[in-house]
Design a protein around this nucleic acid. Structure first.
Lengths: 197, 197
DNA sequence: ATACGATACGGAACAGCGTTCCGTTTAGTC
DNA sequence: GACTAAACGGAACGCTGTTCCGTATCGTAT
């Protein structure tokens, strides 16, 4: 009969130790490979560095995006948590927004190719969604606060702003004359404009 | 006979007729396929539609970018020529810049995947260069005029602005909530800001 | 009109990558 | 120690870009 309970764990067997070990190894390997060769590096390369077969990679992380989410989760989390913190400790919500955007840009720009994944159709659906689900609310909060403080005009959607910032970060490495930050600054300046004709 | 002249043509033989015919056919086929399946469509598909072998495609257009340049040349040219025209017929240089940017965005946004090629490392070097070589001077002229008229702040590089606009246009089709034009408007608004604190 | 050689053609062949699938191995449990 | 579910490895498949060369075709000199 088995109590009807057991709602969440160990139906019959516990997780195999080699499986958890491999998952960890894979995570580390993927982090290294992503850093070295970008987020588009061949799966085989990651498998090789972790010393496993490709089948194992796919079992643990069905899509490349799942792997990327796992690799970058901590940093995304940190960025998300920084939002409210900045808002609390900074006098001007707009200044807080600026600093937060800077954090976000830092994050995107230091990982080769990460910015491209902000596009919805980049084949990184899981990563895309995770980024947006986690960060859009934070951005929204900052935007609202700045609007309430009368520092920026209303009407801008956090989702759109985040995607725009992500897009602007694409291809930063390929040309030294292109600095996304300058344009993002311009964008934020544009937000300030008090609805002029 | 042959005057000593003829400085540019027919060293010994003239171009073969099948070659010119195939080049035309290829151009038409590529235009159709690009429109239908995006600029990343398989070369084989283009070859098939043109009724030639892949070797022929590569002989006429060594890289995909060369093909794209040939396909879009007219439209890029039109856009480039519209710049000075708008400047001449519009009172405000900033207004002219706005209209011109609108044209550019129209162009990018109506071709599936074209915007991505504005990135320097997208593997579309020839296209990237052509776009930039042709359009950056035009944009620069508009920017300068607007600066001279005191409508925008100085210091913005046409190259950077163009790349930024191109980047913002990426992925427009994948999400109806994302409208690049709103952000580009914001960007241009930011330009207007008279150098505030 | 014909022959000849340069030019262009076609598509097989190779390489790199993502992804699937299944025979084999291994860890956990009895 | 035996049994079985879980996990593994990597061969295999399909799709793509790109190269290469034997063959067909066109332009021209005769």
């Amino acid at each position: 009969m088995s109590s009807a309970g057991q709602p969440e764990k160990t139906p019959t067997r516990s997780r195999r130790s080699d499986a958890v070990r491999n998952q960890q190894t894979l995570l580390a390997a993927a982090a290294e490979v992503f850093a070295a060769s970008g987020i588009d590096a061949p799966i085989r390369e990651i498998a090789a560095r972790a010393g496993v077969g490709v089948g194992t990679v796919y079992r643990h992380f069905p899509t490349r995006a799942d792997l990327a989410v796992a690799v970058y989760r901590h940093q995304v989390e940190a960025c998300a948590e920084a939002g409210p913190a900045l808002l609390a400790e900074t006098g001007s919500p707009l200044a807080a927004l600026r600093q937060w955007v800077d954090l976000f840009v830092d994050f995107l720009v230091t990982k080769h190719g990460l910015a491209n994944t902000l596009q919805a159709d980049s084949g990184f659906d899981a990563l895309h969604s995770y980024f947006l689900d986690r960060l859009v609310p934070v951005c929204s909060q900052l935007l609202d606060a700045a609007v309430d403080a009368g520092e920026i005009r209303p009407g801008t959607h956090a989702f759109e702003l985040m995607r725009g910032i992500g897009n602007l970060c694409i291809g930063r490495d390929s040309d030294p004359r292109y600095d996304p930050r300058r344009l993002i600054d311009l964008l934020l300046q544009g937000l300030r404009q008090p609805q002029s004709p």
